[in-house]
């Protein structure tokens, strides 16, 4: 049963990633694209965790943690750039 449920959740996360890509391409403004990228990295963490579960290994945990940290920092950095035109003043 677990394999079927995992397949369904894989499909759900995949569809959400596609929706995010659509928003990333359509825009219409720069903050919209940042929001799409922000959601995209969270969804890719979900995908990595799911893949680790289906493979039965915890090796992917560190990768997920790193993506979470770098994604947050890059979102804040890009927003700061939009706000001030500079990242470190």
């Amino acid at each position: 049963m677990l394999e079927t449920v995992m397949l369904i959740v894989f499909a759900m996360v995949g569809v959400s990633l596609l929706l995010n890509v659509w928003r990333l391409l359509v825009g219409p403004s720069v903050p919209d694209r940042i929001l799409a990228l922000d959601t995209m990295y969270i969804n890719s963490i979900a995908l990595i965790i799911l893949y680790g579960m289906s493979m039965g290994t915890t090796l992917y945990f560190e990768a997920a943690l790193l993506i979470a940290m770098l994604g947050f920092v890059s979102t804040v950095a890009v927003c700061k750039y939009l706000l001030r035109g500079d990242i470190i003043e």
């Binding site: 449920v5 759900m12 995010n20």
Partner: peptide, 21 residues
């Protein structure tokens, strides 16, 4: 338990992305 939690999580992630679009 795992299946129900996975399905709830998948649903919420999907809802978030639907709201985005």
């Amino acid at each position: 338990i795992i299946s129900i939690l996975l399905l709830i999580g998948g649903c919420f992630i999907l809802v978030g992305s639907i709201g985005l679009v």
